[in-house]
Amino acid sequence: MSDGVDDVRPRTRDRRGRGMRGPGVLPAVPGTPALRTARQRFDQLVLDVVTPLDERWHRHLGLVEYAVEDTPMLPDDWGDETVPLSSLVRGKGQAPTRLVIFRRPIEHRASTRDELEAMVHTVVVEQLAELLNLAPGQVDERYGDDD
Rank of each mutant, 00 (worst) to 15 (best):
M1G: 15
M1F: 11
G4D: 14
D6C: 02
D7T: 02
D7L: 05
R9H: 13
R9L: 14
P10N: 13
R11Q: 11
R11C: 09
T12F: 04
R13M: 03
R15I: 09
G17R: 03
R18A: 10
R18H: 13
G19E: 11
G22N: 13
P23E: 15
V25I: 06
V25C: 07
L26E: 15
L26H: 12
V29Y: 04
V29C: 06
G31P: 02
G31F: 06
T37F: 01
A38Q: 08
R39V: 15
Q40F: 02
F42C: 08
D43M: 09
Q44C: 11
D48M: 04
V49A: 09
V49W: 02
V50E: 10
P52C: 13
L53G: 03
L53K: 04
D54T: 00
H58I: 06
R59Q: 12
L61N: 02
L63D: 01
V64Y: 07
Y66A: 07
Y66Q: 09
V68K: 01
E69K: 13
E69R: 14
E69M: 12
D70Y: 10
P72A: 03
P75K: 11
D76K: 09
D77K: 05
W78C: 10
G79P: 00
V83S: 01
P84L: 08
L85I: 01
S87P: 00
L88F: 09
V89F: 12
K92E: 12
G93R: 01
G93E: 01
G93L: 02
G93F: 00
Q94D: 12
A95G: 07
R98D: 05
F102T: 07
P105E: 01
E107C: 11
H108A: 15
A110E: 04
R113V: 15
E115R: 14
A118M: 04
A118G: 14
M119C: 08
M119H: 05
H121E: 10
H121Q: 11
T122S: 05
V123H: 03
V124P: 00
V124H: 04
V125Q: 03
V125L: 03
Q127S: 08
L128D: 00
A129Q: 03
E130F: 04
N133A: 12
A135S: 09
P136A: 05
G137Y: 09
G137R: 10
Q138W: 06
Q138S: 10
Q138Y: 08
D140M: 11
R142I: 05
Y143H: 14
D146T: 13
D147M: 07
